[in-house]
Design a protein around this nucleic acid. Structure first.
Length: 489
RNA sequence: GGUCGGUUGUCCGAGUGGCUAGGAAUCGGUCUGCAAAACCGGGAACGGCGGUUCGAAUCCGCCACCGACCUCCA
C-alpha cells in the first residue's frame, strides 16, 4: 500500500506520487483561521480535508508533524478603510474587549467546533503574535538581500525585483506583466515602489491597538509573513505539504513562496494542496460575503436557512461525500441525505458485528479493502471509497437477511476494513447518545408498557403512546424483538 | 477585462474513449395488528452545436450559462 499515494500538486497542476523528503517523516503545514468571529461551515472544509490527509498519512505509517497556525494578528480590513484598523482591533472595539480576549474567545470556539467534528489536534498550533521576533528577523534578511525596502516606517517586498530573478506567479499561473496591464492603480499606495509589492511590516496608525516595537517603528507584521516564518521554524527550510483553501493560492501562497525563496534561495514547499470551497446557492460561503452558517448554528439548527439541526458527524460525512477539490454545495436536502447515509453506514457496521459466520462465503468481499485504498491513493477520493463501503453494506445486509453467507475470515476482514476506513481514516464516530439518562429511563418504562399492551392486542393504548411520543419529536421504531427510539426533532 | 475551473438523473455527487459509481428521494416488494423504521429490488443522466472515432458523458473546436481568483477570506 505504501508509497502509492498520489496528490494533486497545485504547483505542477498534476497528480504526483507523494514521496516525502525524509521518510518516514512528513511535514505538513495548513493555513488555519483568523480568529475574529465564529467559525462557519467553510472553515470545516479544510479542517476535515486535511484531517483526513493527516489520518491517512499516519495510517500509511508516516510520522507526521502537522502544523496549523492561528492567525491572531488581524490584517487590514481593506486598503481604503480610512481608519486602517485591523479585524481583531475592530472586533475588540465593537465588543469592548482586549484584542487578546477576542482571539481567545474565538479560538476556543474554533477548537470546540473542531473537537465536535472529530478532527485530530495538530502537532503544533503556532500563533502569529508568538513569532513577532522571528518575523522581524526574516524581514531583516529580506532587506539585507535587497528584496525588501523600508518606506515611511513600513517594509515592503519588492515583487518586480523578485520576478526578475525568480518567477512571481509560479503557483497561481499569473504573469506579473499581464497583471500590471490588467489592473488599475489603487489610491493610497504611494509608499510602495511597485504596484504589486506587499507589506512585510506595516506602520501602526495612532489608533491601532495591536502593535509591536521594531527598528522601523511601532507596527505589526504583514499579511503573508507569519506562515513563511512559522512553517520554516517548525518544519524546516523545505517541507513536504502545504495546505489551505483554494482562495489562498493568490495572493497569500504566492507571496509566501516569494518571501521564502527570496530569503532562503530555494522554494519552501514540495506539494501544494488546496481544498475547494463550500458554496451556498452556487456562491462561495464566506464571512466577508455574509452568507455563512456557523458551526454552532448547524449543530443546533438555529438559523433561518436550516430546516433542522445537523450533527457534527453529518457535516463530516457530507464533506467526505465530495472530493476535496470539488466545490460542495450546501442545502438542507444534501445535508439530510448525508445524515441518512451516515446512519445507514453505521447501522451496517453494528449489523456486521453480530453476523453469524458460515463455513464458506457465497459473495466475494476480498477486493473491497483494496478498492478503498486505491480510491484514497487517487488524490483522496473519499466519495469513491465510500461507494465501495456501501457495496459492502449491501452485502452485510444480505447476509444478515440470510440471503448470502460469509465465512468467519471474511467477516473479520470486513470488520477490519470498516474500522480502518470509517473510524481511523474518515474520522467518523457514532454520535453521542442523547445523554439524558432520566429521559432514557422514562422512555424505557413507557415503551415496555407499550410492548405489554401490544402483547395484549390493546392497539389503542400502544398507538396512543406512539403517537404522543411522535408529537413530542420522539420516533418509536419497532423491531423484530423489541424496540428502539430516536429523537428526531 | 485577465487567469483558472465547472455544467452529470428529482437532489447531492463520482467517473472519464466501449463495462451498474454511491448516497438521498421516488416507485415496487419483504417484514408488521396498522404505521414508522429496517431490508431487498427496479426505473431514471451526462449544457447546446459541430468534429475525431467502429464507438464519446469521456478527446478536439465553437457557443451558452455558472463559479473562484485578480482586495481580507478556508
Amino acid at each position: 500500500m505504501k508509497n502509492a499515494l498520489y496528490l494533486y500538486n497545485t504547483l505542477t497542476r498534476k497528480k504526483e506520487l507523494f514521496e516525502p523528503l525524509a521518510p518516514p517523516f512528513v511535514g505538513m503545514y495548513v493555513c488555519g483561521p483568523t480568529v475574529y468571529s465564529e467559525s462557519h461551515l467553510g472553515h470545516a472544509r479544510p479542517a476535515v480535508a486535511f484531517d483526513v490527509l493527516y489520518r491517512y498519512l499516519m495510517h500509511l505509517g508516516y510520522k507526521v508533524r502537522y502544523v496549523r497556525n492561528i492567525t491572531d494578528v488581524g490584517h487590514l480590513e481593506n486598503e481604503v478603510d480610512e481608519t486602517g484598523e485591523d479585524k481583531i482591533s475592530h472586533r475588540a472595539r465593537q465588543e469592548h474587549l482586549e484584542p487578546m480576549e477576542v482571539v481567545q474567545k474565538y479560538m476556543n470556539s474554533f477548537h470546540r467546533g473542531m473537537e465536535k467534528l472529530n478532527t485530530l489536534e495538530p502537532s503544533i498550533e503556532p500563533r502569529a503574535t508568538g513569532h513577532i521576533i522571528e518575523q522581524q528577523q526574516m524581514i531583516d534578511k529580506l532587506i539585507t538581500s535587497g528584496y525588501a525596502y523600508v518606506s515611511n516606517g513600513s517594509v515592503y517586498f519588492d515583487v518586480e525585483k523578485y520576478d526578475k530573478n525568480h518567477f512571481y506567479g509560479i503557483l497561481s499561473g499569473r504573469v506579473l506583466e499581464e497583471m500590471k496591464a490588467n489592473s488599475r492603480v489603487l489610491e493610497g499606495q504611494e509608499e510602495k515602489h511597485g504596484q504589486f509589492d506587499f507589506a512585510l511590516w506595516k506602520k501602526a496608525s495612532p489608533g491601532h491597538i495591536m502593535r509591536w516595537p521594531s527598528q522601523w517603528g511601532e507596527g505589526f507584521p504583514g499579511w503573508h509573513l507569519e506562515c513563511s516564518v512559522m512553517s520554516t521554524r517548525y518544519l524546516g527550510e523545505v517541507f513536504d505539504i502545504h495546505g489551505g483553501g483554494m482562495d489562498l493560492i493568490f495572493p497569500h501562497h504566492e507571496c509566501e513562496i516569494a518571501q521564502s525563496t527570496a530569503a532562503m534561495g530555494h522554494a519552501p514547499v514540495r506539494y501544494w494542496v488546496h481544498n475547494n470551497m463550500v458554496t451556498i446557492n452556487g456562491q462561495k460561503m464566506a464571512r466577508s460575503l455574509g452568507n455563512f452558517i456557523t458551526l454552532d448554528e448547524l449543530f443546533t439548527g438555529n438559523h433561518k436557512l436550516l430546516m433542522q439541526a445537523y450533527s457534527p458527524m453529518t457535516i463530516r460525512f457530507f464533506m467526505l461525500q465530495a472530493q476535496y477539490r470539488s466545490t460542495l454545495d450546501f442545502s438542507n436536502e444534501a445535508l439530510l441525505a448525508a445524515s441518512l447515509g451516515l446512519q445507514k453506514l453505521l447501522a451496517a457496521e453494528r449489523t456486521l458485528a453480530n453476523l453469524k459466520p458460515d463455513s464458506t462465503s457465497t459473495v466475494d468481499v476480498t477486493g473491497i479493502a483494496k478498492k478503498c485504498y486505491d480510491a484514497m491513493n487517487d488524490d483522496l477520493n473519499t466519495p469513491i471509497a465510500l461507494a465501495h463501503l456501501f457495496d459492502a453494506v449491501r452485502i452485510i445486509n444480505l447476509v444478515s437477511d440470510g440471503k448470502e453467507k460469509l465465512s468467519a475470515d471474511d467477516i473479520r476482514s470486513l470488520t477490519e476494513t470498516f474500522r480502518t476506513f470509517i473510524h481511523d481514516i474518515f474520522g467518523l464516530r457514532a454520535e453521542e447518545e442523547s445523554g439524558n439518562e432520566k429521559l432514557a429511563g422514562v422512555l424505557s418504562l413507557l415503551l415496555d408498557m407499550r410492548q405489554e399492551a401490544k402483547a395484549r392486542k390493546e392497539w389503542s393504548v400502544s398507538d396512543r403512546i406512539r403517537d404522543r411520543l411522535s408529537e413530542l419529536g420522539i420516533t418509536v421504531k419497532d423491531r423484530k424483538d423489541g424496540y428502539d427510539w430516536e429523537i428526531t426533532s
